[in-house]
Amino acid sequence: MLDASPLSLSAADADAFLPPTALAVPAAADWRQTLKVGDIVSFRFPVEDLEGGPAKNRPYLLLEVEPTHAGPRITLAYGTTVHGGRNRGYEVRLSDPAVFREAGLHRPTRFIGLRRLTVSADHPGFAVCRDLGTPKIGRLAGAEFERLQAVRDRIHAEADIAADRRAERRREVAEDRARRSRAPARPFVVEVKRRRQVTSR
């Protein structure tokens, strides 16, 4: 499920992260069970690029990992190297070279919390490195991880407010229906008409 329309894909974005083999990311028997909030993964962008080519691998930031009976549900935040002034309250920016290289990137990147994608851990969009057996390319730390938590807190708070509003609206509708069902019936009068008898002459 894509929560908002994605940004346009640029060639710079597609080349925003280092090959996974360049990073010291330990292999896992089942990487799906090891993903955590703050991980950065390689994921195939779900639309064709501007030139009409196939989807490309790009960095996404893990916002949520929700356990379900069918396996983890992963919420990812879109990563882009395109500068912009919108969505600032929902962004995690990696601008310092030491920071973005530690996260598996080789260009300044911003992850946009409003551009979210929720998929199962088995989604074929995860680009698993053959050598490492995982799509994970890095992880946030320090101030950048704290910023991620602030963005998550804001998203959660807004979701709670929206849920409360929907619940209040449902209560109002239910109360209105109950009032209508309890309203007294409109009075009515039964008029009896007698049939006229026809006499023969």
Rank of each mutant, 00 (worst) to 15 (best):
A167K: 08
L18D: 04
G38E: 05
K193L: 10
V192E: 12
L35Q: 02
Y78K: 03
G79Y: 02
D30E: 14
L35N: 04
A28Q: 15
D49N: 13
T81V: 14
D160T: 05
G113I: 08
A27W: 04
I112L: 14
R139I: 00
A77V: 10
H156C: 05
G142D: 06
G133D: 13
G113R: 05
T34R: 11
T34Q: 15
R186A: 05
P72G: 03
R182P: 00
R169V: 07
F145I: 04
R170V: 12
L94V: 05
G53Y: 07
T75G: 06
K193G: 04
R44P: 00
A163S: 13
D13Q: 04
V92A: 07
R177A: 15
E51S: 13
A178I: 03
V65M: 07
P187H: 01
D131F: 10
A70Q: 15
R171A: 15
A14W: 00
P20H: 11
A157C: 01
Q33I: 01
H106N: 14
T34D: 14
L50C: 00
R179M: 09
R73C: 04
V119P: 04
R154P: 01
P46S: 07
L148I: 07
E146F: 03
A98L: 11
A103M: 10
L18N: 06
G138Y: 10
R177W: 09
T68L: 05
A24G: 08
A16W: 04
G125I: 02
R170T: 09
A159K: 10
T21Q: 14
A22G: 03
V151N: 02
L148Q: 05
E172R: 15
L23E: 12
D122F: 09
A163N: 06
L63Q: 12
P26T: 05
P184C: 07
A27E: 13
V25A: 06
I161Q: 12
D13W: 01
V198G: 00
V173L: 15
V198N: 08
P108E: 07
R115P: 01
T21S: 15
P135C: 03
A11R: 11
N87V: 04
A24N: 13
G133I: 08
W31H: 11
Q149F: 08
R195F: 03
V190K: 05
D96L: 08
F126E: 05
L62I: 15
D15E: 13
C129F: 07
V47I: 08
T118N: 06
R170M: 14
